[in-house]
Amino acid sequence: MVRLITHNLLACHAKGCTTNNFPLQIKDAQLALREAEFNPDFLRGFIPRIEWAALVSAARQLGDESLPNEVPEMIDDDFLRGLHHVLLEIHIDEGAMVCPNCGHVYPISSGIPNMLLAEHEIG
């Protein structure tokens, strides 16, 4: 499952690619929505680890405009429910993630991203 929570943690790691290698651009995505159990404690604990701008832009690339540009100061239940949906319920089943810097393509097949590099591409 490539959910946006995972996408938010993946960066290009090709040889020499160390700047502008995050977030990966999502291409040709086939999406599925799958319900997940809402856990506000998890979300509150995870918010500090999110790269917010990357999450907002990834969600917008997938047609979800629901997130605010910044994390609100008051984190209420409504905000957490919206975040829960974007982070954990939108699945990229097929498609690819492309490095904005070097253009390396990481394919997604049956919901599993292939982040392996060929031997000559490993830094």
Partner: peptide, 21 residues
């Protein structure tokens, strides 16, 4: 149990974002 698998070597694609995380 909801697991998020990826094909990759060690922590390579995650290291940049999972520093001390």
């Amino acid at each position: 149990i909801s697991l998020d698998p990826l094909i990759g070597s060690l922590a390579a694609p995650l290291r940049h974002r999972l520093t001390r995380a």
